[in-house]
Write a protein that binds this DNA or RNA. Structure first.
Lengths: 189, 189
DNA sequence: ACACGATACTAGCACCGCTAGACAATCGAG
DNA sequence: CTCGATTGTCTAGCGGTGCTAGTATCGTGT
């Protein structure tokens, strides 16, 4: 019946609403302030409704993290394909740092909070897509070394810059300089 | 009076007991399982006693993080001074990764949980001491670049390797290869 | 011996994640 | 069109959390 489809559509819409509300709240006041109660009030439903969509609070965080992974992959791809020839690495790396700086709570969900977000061989496609973007710019530098290992190394270096920078553990205002240093190490190695 | 001193000594001892108990529990079952109630039961005191030592649960985490910073600084220094000439960088970098792998909960406290742990100019001495160890091995590679910025970059790269590796986001068993790649980029740059 | 100050405790607050059971709205069969 | 059945939502409440006010107890100095 058509009614059934409308139901499912509305349900999917509400699920998206939950995820985006959680994300907004986290980005505004931190993940600690994202409680199931407040989230329920925000979307104007009672708490059990949330549990009909997600297994628990953790699953909501996971959903936000997954959304973040998708957006990150997209941002990296946009940066790479939109870059001048020969400047893809700089563009992608910059996009990674920009993404982390622009969406700190989202980044936190992806790399600190999410428990059910699998990496490795069984990782969701969006994660693999993100890694593929990094691979596309790092692998050409591998030479005789394993390109995947080199990509992992480059990613980790970039990631460290992002997280330490976000937490105020590196001197502010010098992120560009650090990125320049890092990339020079990689293109010259 | 001498009694007063004994009191203070016992008090300091109990404070250390709290910190080490929290650390042990976190390392054994994760930080989520470190609740004030369980911690109180573990040290065989009631909860308010904890609050006479620390402002709250967060302050206990901070104390653990500070202890971790001290141990990390010590481990790095030991690695550096104990290394063969010319291999200080490898030794220190390896020590950093080993420390993160051996004390995941401690590392989490330091870089994800601690809220009251200041970095930058007002950072506690132990943190500066740790950075100084990194500076000692990275700065010589700076050439015409700012040695502090290069150190920050090297630290970040190393840190990224540590955290992504710890969370299972890089293929296991290849940490050595990645470190080798990373260091080669830095010594050749 | 006794009053006093320090110290630890019991009990309870508001809030958390989560869920059982009651209730209402919608659907399909006759 | 009516009436069970099913689906969906809500109210209320459980155990646990961080934290604290008020009470009792203990050791101390006079």
């Amino acid at each position: 019946m058509a009614t059934q489809q409308r139901r499912e559509r509305e349900r999917a819409q509400r699920e998206a609403l939950i995820v985006s509300a959680a994300r907004d709240m986290a980005e505004a006041d931190g993940w600690a302030s994202v409680t199931v109660r407040r989230l329920a009030e925000r979307i104007e439903y009672s708490q059990p409704v949330l549990y009909s969509h997600f297994a628990g609070r953790g699953a909501i965080v996971d959903a936000v993290a997954l959304q973040g992974a998708a957006e990150l992959a997209e941002a990296l791809e946009r940066a790479r394909t939109g870059a001048e020839e020969g400047e893809e690495l700089e563009a992608v790396a910059q996009a990674y740092l920009d993404f982390a700086a622009a969406n700190p709570a989202l980044f936190e969900a992806m790399f600190a909070l999410a428990e059910g977000l699998e990496f490795g061989p069984n990782a969701p496609d969006v994660l693999k897509a993100g890694f593929a973007q990094l691979y596309a710019v790092f692998a050409p530098l591998a030479g005789d070394r394993d390109p995947e290992t080199l990509t992992e190394t480059g990613w980790a270096a970039l990631h460290g810059l992002a997280v330490l920078g976000r937490d105020g553990r590196l001197r502010p205002g010098l992120q560009q300089d650090r990125l320049a240093i890092l990339l020079r190490q990689f293109v010259n190695g």
